[in-house]
Amino acid sequence: MTAVQEPLLVADRVVVDYPVKGWRQQPIRVLRGVSLDIGPGETVGLVGESGSGKTTLGRAILGLAPVTGGEIRFQDRDISRLGKRERRALSKDIQVVFQDPYSSLNPAKTVEDILTEPLLVTGTARAEAGRRVRSLLDAVHLPVDAGQRLPREFSGGQRQRIAIARALTRDPKLIVCDEPVSALDLSTQSRVLDLFIEIQQRTGVAYLFITHDLSVVRHVSHRVAVMYRGELVETGDATRVTTTPEHAYTRRLLLAAPVPHPRRQAERRAERHRFLAAQAAAGPAGS
């Protein structure tokens, strides 16, 4: 890494517990001391399976999940326990793109309303906000007249572009992207990923890119962190983690992802069977 730069965001042994309904129930520990840093303009991919806690880390950074222990520092300031007003002020710098482009846009508002809202609450003049919306639509390659339409008039990929435009409205320094392409068709997915990269190169925004898909993560990330049962098991450069992983879980994850080619997939499958057999022989470590 070009590590002279101060990290933009540092997660330091973050713990998140979710309370369980019922009297005297033990809360569920979703994150068990996760440490991670993201540099300016950098994409850190966060990979894991369902229930691993990857989404929870993103929500903790956004202030949508309660941080029970540890801290999250943004530009050297602890943001893990901010008051409502301070949290709102931070929305200028930290933004989000969610997985589901169907539920993340209010169906009753026009695209222009959706995009101008974050500007108008901070006192931007309407005319200025309108100009900004046009340049945002242009940046995500949507037609300028898209502003007058409702979300339902757009396909999944186009809605995700709108969600990206909304995240960009106030020039954030970090965008948490929570599975932003998993709901999209294959061909749409690769175009939206290219848009993410293009925007990063133009604006220098940093991404925390949460996904379950190793090939997606390799495509967009500079560094990759692998999460398993609420802990990071491996962090490193994207190529290394996604090709020659060190941790057994990452290897299992990689070998389980099917290659879109019959012969090479047969090889990977055989390798996976060898690996699992070796693991089983080595003893009942892991599951």
């Binding site: 070009t2 730069q5 540099g39 300016p40 303009g41 950098e42 994409t43 294959l186 061909s187 997915q189 690769s190 990923l193 990269i197 990063q200 190169q201 133009r202 604006t203 220098g204 925004v205 940093a206 090939s215 997606v216 390799r218 495509h219 967009v220 990330s221 500079h222 560094r223 450069d237 994207a238 190529t239 290394r240 996604t242 090709t243 290659v259 879109p260 080619h261």
Partner: peptide, 22 residues
């Protein structure tokens, strides 16, 4: 061909590109 080219399996990783620092 378009669908197959959309799979990311052989796409280059980004690690070799430096972070986009303004």
């Amino acid at each position: 061909r378009m669908l197959l080219s959309s799979t990311l399996e052989n796409s280059p990783s980004r690690q070799d590109l430096p972070p986009a620092v303004p």
